[in-house]
Structure formats: structure tokens, C-alpha cells
Design a protein around this nucleic acid. Sequence first.
RNA 1: GGCGGCAUAGCCAAGUGGUAAGGCAGCGGUCUGCAAAACCGUUAUCUCCGGUUCAAAUCCGGAUGCCGCCUCCA
Length: 486
Amino acid sequence: MPLRIYNTLTQGKQEFKPMKEGHVGMYVCGITAYDLCHIGHARSAIVFDTVYRYLRAKGYDVTFVKNFTDIDDKIITRANKEGLTAGQVSEKYIEEYYKDMGKLGLRKPAHEPRATMYINDIVGLVKRLIEKGHAYESNGDVYYAVRSFEGYGKLSGKDIGELEAGARVEPGEAKKDPLDFALWKKSKPGEPSWESPWGKGRPGWHIECSAMSTHYLGDSFDIHGGGMDLIFPHHENEIAQSEGATGKQFVTYWLHNGFIQTNKEKMSKSLGNFFTIREILERFEPQALRLFVLMHHYRNPVDFSDLSLKEAEKALYRGYASLRLVQSLPAEGKPPLSPDKLGAFAQKLSEYETCFYNAMDDDFNTAGALSGLFDLLRLINTYFKDATARPEEDAVQRLGGFVRAAADILGVFDSDPRSFLSSRREKRLAGLGLSKAGIEERLARRSLLRKDRAFKEADEIRAGLLREGISIMDTPGGTVWDIAEE
RNA sequence: GGCGGCAUAGCCAAGUGGUAAGGCAGCGGUCUGCAAAACCGUUAUCUCCGGUUCAAAUCCGGAUGCCGCCUCCA
């Protein structure tokens, strides 16, 4: 089945056809480095990481570029507040970005360019736009003449006439038209600046992405992504800049992820209703956050809450418990599955595998894909809970292959099940202030009581452990315990 | 005001023409000394009104509610 992608530009799903057979050029707008990342940034990062992973899984050679904006008003403001230089601020928050995002299992893009390292490209592009009559210099600033670009508004569905009413002019700006936007800003005293034909200044926000994407991917490339809010004006302006300069179509497919909300409101700095990735990862597994994101379609808004993250975490643990069953094959003391049953298992496996890939091919429908994966996890429990099979068995091999492939695409369920579960258990145990030896001592006592059929006392021990956050299970192979889910 | 999106079970959430995936929770059952876990079963006329169609959650028109963008924002 061919991959179909929803394209903001055409407002519909289209079959994906890269410009160059087998190769994909993909650019995603990264962060402006002036503060810690919140989970909205995490969603965007996870979504496009998954897109990247899936394209690679489809066999494409993907050149993935994701930028950092390291010069901008907000950075300068922050620098003044903290008594640092703009460079120090962006450097600091890029480091923090890596600390937080590094835990989310993001595949490293081929290039992660920073705006200030591409000033030459930017100046060159601005010069070209002036030459082509799309931009003009005005008192040390350079503006893009929006009305000179015929297709302006085609991405965001906006009409120039209607935009005019809302356009603003900052004090001190010398635009010929209120719609025009800055390509190059003359620097004020004390601000970071670079030499240019128009005097000392710094790039406007939109121009950097045009310059850096073209630097690595050429005048035209396949995929450009970012958050919904970047559609206008950021991406609209990028199109005007790049297509104005080259006369060629800039990007074929525009992808935009929906927002994280809390209480049905957009999560944002200005509303103060945001959670940083850091805060969330103190309380939840990184893979639970990933799963939470992937359980929703990337274009829909998602309401964030502790409850929904807890649900994702439970599903994650349950899944790993199933995978641990497979990992333990062949399991001693369990009867082998008959060839018939293995055959039935393999058939179901194929069904779920198809479901998974069909969903992914349909505009990266990870929520649909996960339903196939969860079906499979249940199937594993059904067949392997009380039976075993040799790992070299064909069905088991295929199972392993599919689980690895799916985990590689989604970035969840890709840890070693046994060590994932035990390390999580130890972490939580420490949090509860309990020791393994203490628990096992109490369980040993309980076992003796049970042997004597002193169930009342045995049950008291069990109830006591549960109050402290430990649940236990009596199995034929003995009593096992685990952290009780809330 | 302009543009766009969303409304599916107790909660979360896929599904864009052929009578509703999955997750979490609940209930009944199997298992268990009792539990737990796991499995099986069960829980929805898809916001409302009209239209097109043999057939609509799915297409069209309208209503209501919610949200986003139009200003920095993933």
C-alpha cells in the first residue's frame, strides 16, 4: 500500500512521491532556544521523529534537517534579564533541549543547523530577493514586499485583502506596506549583530529557515513540518521567500502537528498552563509520554492530563509484560504449543501486521497502528501464557521480527523487556522506601502461613504490602510481586 | 469579522460510503484457599435537524457547542 500524507497546502491526503526516487528531503522547524521545552515541543519532536523513522522503514534514504533558532527577540530579552549574551542563552537552552529530548528516543537528524552559523546564506538570499524586486532596504532594515509575491496566502488560505486589516507596524519600522515582514533587522546598540550590505544587523525569523533548508536540501524538497501555529505567518513567509528567490516550488508536502492542550486550551507560555518535559519525566516513563503522543492522531488537538499519561504508562507496562513472555521462550515447565496453534498464531500475527502498516501508510495513523500492536500483545498472552515454543520456530521468529520493526518505528517497546520492567521496579521501590529483601522476607513468612492454611494471617501480610504499594501474585511457580498501579 | 479544525461508549481515542479498532476503567465468567495477573464475554442507533444513496459516523445543507490561526508561539 502506498503512503498517503495529508498536505496542508492542498488540504487533503495525497500519495507520497518524493522528487528523487528513493530519497526524501525533510525539514522540520525546531525550537527557539530561550527557555526549557514543554510537552508541546515534545509532541512535535516525537511526531516528526516518527515520520522520519517510518520513512526510513519504508526504505527511503531520508535527509532530515531540524534547525535551532539561536537569534531572536525573545533570546535577546532573556539574555538582558539574565545578564548573559544572546549566544550564551541560546547555547544554554540548546543544551537543556538535548538533556530533555535525549530521553525521548529521538533519532538524530542528519543536520541541526543554527541560524547564526548561516548568516552568509541568509545575506545572500536577502540580496537575491532585493535583486528580484521582492524586497527592499529601508533605513538599515530589509523587508519582504508581500504584495510582490503572487501566491502569498496559498498555504494558510489567507487573502491579502483581509490580512491587511490585522497587520501591525511596530514603532520605528519603515515598511512600505503593513503586510511586509522583516528579512533583516538593523541592530540596536548592544544587540548582537553581523555585517551586511545594509549595515550591522541580524536576520528576521523566517529567513533563516529558507536559507538553511535550501543549504542542505536544495531549492525544492519533499517535506516540511512544524506545529500548526507555524502555518501562518512563518511557513507562509518561507514560501514567499524561497519561491520568490528561486521561482521554483519550495516544498511538496507541508505537515503540521496539532497542539497539546490543557482543559481544552492551547498550552502556551503566555497562558502559563504548560508543563515542561523535565517535570513530566520526573513522574513518568519517557516511553509513556511517547506512547501518549502516538495514541492520538498527530493532527488532532490533544488534551493533556496526569490521568491520560497514567493510562499510557499502564498500557506500556502491560505491553512489556507480554513481551517478557516472548523473551522467556522456551519457558520451562510449560507444554509446547501445537503446530496447529502456532499456525493460528502466525495467521493472526499477519493480520495485525497488516493492520499496523496500513494505518501507518494512512497519513502516519499511529493510533490505528497501535491498535494492531495491542491486539498482538493480547494474542501473545493468549498463546504463550501457559504454553511455550522454541525461539527458532518460524512463528516466533516472525513475531520477533515484527515487534522489533514496530518498536523501531514507534520508539516504544524497544527496550529489553526484562530489564525495562526490573529497572522500573527498582526505581519505584526506592520511591516507596521499601527494600527487596524486606518484601521477600514477608513473602516467605506468608508462604509458610499459607502452607499451614493460616489464610487470615497470610492475607493480612498481603493487605499490608498492598497498602505500601506492592501487589502480589500467587503463581504455580511461587509468589511474585510487583509495584501496584495506582 | 476572515480562514481552518473538532463533536464517536464512564473517560481517552482510531475509523471519511457497506451496519463501529484500540487504551483506561466497570460488570459477569475461567483460574485461585481468597485475591492478583492473564484470558473469555459484556458495555455506543457515532451532538442535533434535514438531504443525497440500495447503503452514511463517514458525502451535502443547516443548527448548536468547543477549539486553533489571523500578533511571538511546536
